[in-house]
Design a protein around this nucleic acid. Structure first.
Lengths: 192, 192
DNA sequence: TCGAATGTCTAGCAGTGCTAGAATCCAGTC
DNA sequence: GACTGGATTCTAGCACTGCTAGACATTCGA
């Protein structure tokens, strides 16, 4: 194994270490606690090494965490609908998985859907994990779109889920009755 | 008019000047550009004077801006439904007004629904402008709730609107087809 | 006019994201 | 094994952030 390969492996490992450390810090203490100084301390290098891996700085790190999140969201949704539920059961399963995912990974969710990451959505350059996540939503929900364009329908349903999640998390909707709100939403979107 | 009254008038004026300046800066350059140094420069006092008005610091300033926003949102929605539209027309008018309000006042909207302001929602201590805004939504939409609790129904519809607005603004939903998404949402919620 | 209370300012703290250039290390060549 | 050049990492620092202690200035009542 060449010196070059070993160097590349070390670099990739360090890159992943930074991303994992950022995510850990974010989930335990919030994104405000994730600073490049703290990441550097945690990985036992100086700050400029962080910038050697992420040329666009902190926002690129948040983007890298988000990418992981999309892969995991896709997996969570696929597991939720693995039994092949149809109609309302599919919508409910997907909605439940989405809200559960957001609840278990609040900082990851913020990286994916709230914070500025620079990741392009819905264009040619959109990274594969993002496309795949959205594609999974369309696969699952396309059949209940009725007259609406399935992609547009999915965008609207996703928006509603995102709205419930983010308003609840920021304290603008009470946590009580969250399940009831989800039921109302599923009823409205699975109704035909 | 007493010295005390004049002092209080001056203080109230300065307080309002800080809030208005924060909002102007936020709408023109984003909330990141709103710093207490810049606000102080703009109002021609030093930084500690800002803290003399807002003991909780910047987040209290953002909250003050948000309060104004709620009053304006209420007015905008009331204007949109002043003709007394019913059923789907009422839902559409309200949804259009909400999205339009968010589009015209992006930073104000962020203060209201994204940023940490410390303002309590949906509890005893919730400020009147917030209660009034929500009450206006319930007044307008309550009749189309069908079997659902009107307040819960309104929470869900508002979440969906918020989701559309915030995902579009952050570039996660394309601006194209925004009107189409709104139509799909209104159809789902006005459908009975 | 004076003194106390109030209001405002200066100066500074601890932290942020980020980078230039110095220092160190590594690997290839002789 | 030594040397050299390139790569990597570090130190030091910049410009900025939110915020505050104590000094200074102003105001107003007696």
């Amino acid at each position: 194994m060449s010196v070059q390969e070993r160097k590349e492996r070390e670099r990739a490992h360090r890159h992943q270490l930074i991303v994992a450390t950022a995510r850990e810090l974010a989930e335990s203490q919030g994104w405000d606690a994730v600073t490049t100084r703290r990441l550097a301390e945690r990985i036992e290098y100086s700050q400029p090494v962080i910038y050697g891996h992420f040329r666009e700085g902190k926002r690129e790190i948040v983007g890298a965490v988000a990418l992981e999140g999309f892969a995991e969201l896709t997996a969570a949704i696929r597991r939720a609908v693995a039994d092949g539920p149809a109609g309302r059961a599919a919508v409910a399963a997907l909605a439940g998985a989405y809200v559960d995912f957001a609840g278990r990974n609040p900082a990851l969710y913020d990286a994916m859907f709230l914070l500025d990451t620079g990741l392009p959505f819905a264009v040619e350059a959109t990274p594969a994990p993002l496309r795949e996540a959205f594609g999974t939503l369309v696969e699952t929900l396309g059949e209940v779109a009725g007259d609406a364009d399935p992609a547009v329908f999915v965008e609207v349903f996703w928006s509603a889920l995102h709205g419930l999640v983010s308003l609840t998390r920021s304290g603008r909707l009470p946590r009580e009755a969250a399940a009831q709100r989800l039921t109302v939403l599923v009823d409205r979107f699975a109704g035909g």
